[in-house]
Computed example of a mutant assay.
Amino acid sequence: MSGMRRLNLRTFGKLLLMVAVMFGFGYAMVPFYKAFCEFVGINQLGDKSSGIVARNTQVDESRLITVEFDANARGPLTFAPAQSSMQVHPGQMATIRYEVANQQPHSVRAQAIPSYVPAVAASYFKKIECFCFTQQTLQAGEAKEFPVVFVIDANLPKDVKTITLSYTFFDLGKTPPNAAADDGKDGGGNG
């Protein structure tokens, strides 16, 4: 038995040594990687002394696209963009805010549907964040501000210089009384 125990202890010691060596190697890789990158001249974006400035190379700074914003409401809502237009470079991330208010004495559910002019722009207008992705619930008299974060694809045809993004906010009716109370947080369902 003592021979087997000695063998187990020796194996355990070798495994501990191996773990310590692997940890040390991983820890030492950071300065080795940094030294290698400095020597070869790569990956110096975070080094202010290198004079390299990080920028998004997918932004086409040779073009400016005017994006006009429009808002329509179907139902008891007021709905408007915070600004009527902006100019963006293709590939540049931009944000517009839309303001919506429920004019009713009860809560309502609503859904925004976008449309684009010219229609070809729809394929090149990429929304990263948008209130139009889901139904919205507005309490009685509540006003909200919703951002739309977007990028216009740099492959937008050269003849398109203006895009109109128009949203129509449709009132889907009163919020069911139990839906406002539960708000989907009853813990039941399929998880």
Rank of each mutant, 00 (worst) to 15 (best):
M1R: 06
M1H: 01
G3V: 14
R6V: 01
L7V: 00
N8S: 15
L9H: 03
L9T: 06
R10S: 10
T11M: 02
F12S: 14
L16S: 07
L16P: 01
M18A: 15
M18W: 08
V19H: 09
V21R: 08
V21F: 13
F23T: 15
F25C: 04
G26K: 03
Y27V: 03
M29H: 00
V30P: 01
V30M: 01
V30A: 11
P31N: 02
K34E: 08
A35L: 14
F36R: 12
C37S: 06
C37F: 12
E38R: 15
F39T: 00
V40R: 15
G41S: 05
I42D: 13
N43I: 09
Q44P: 10
L45M: 12
D47L: 11
K48M: 02
G51Q: 04
G51E: 11
V53E: 09
V53A: 05
N56S: 05
Q58Y: 10
D60T: 01
S62N: 09
L64T: 08
T66F: 02
V67Q: 13
A73P: 08
R74W: 06
R74K: 03
R74Y: 11
A80Q: 12
A80E: 02
A82P: 14
S84I: 10
S85Q: 12
Q87V: 06
V88W: 07
H89T: 08
P90Y: 11
M93Y: 01
A94G: 07
A94R: 12
I96M: 13
R97M: 06
E99L: 05
V100G: 10
A101E: 00
N102R: 04
Q103M: 07
Q104M: 09
Q104F: 04
P105R: 13
H106T: 02
H106R: 14
H106Y: 15
S107E: 06
V108I: 15
A110C: 02
A110P: 00
Q111I: 05
A112F: 13
A112C: 00
I113G: 10
I113T: 11
S115V: 11
S115K: 10
A119M: 10
V120H: 03
V120C: 06
V120D: 00
A121H: 02
A121G: 08
K126G: 05
K127P: 06
I128D: 05
C130M: 08
F131S: 11
F131Y: 03
F133A: 14
F133L: 12
T134G: 11
T134E: 02
Q136V: 01
Q136N: 06
Q136C: 10
T137R: 09
L138E: 06
L138T: 02
L138Y: 13
A140P: 00
E142C: 12
K144N: 06
K144C: 08
K144M: 04
E145Y: 03
F146C: 07
F146I: 09
V149W: 00
V149C: 09
V151P: 05
A154T: 09
A154M: 00
A154R: 05
K158Q: 13
T162N: 14
I163C: 04
I163S: 14
L165I: 00
S166C: 11
Y167F: 15
T168H: 10
T168C: 05
F169H: 07
F169N: 05
D171N: 02
D171W: 10
G173M: 09
K174R: 07
K174L: 13
P177R: 09
A179K: 06
A181F: 02
D182N: 10
D186L: 15
G189R: 11
N190G: 03
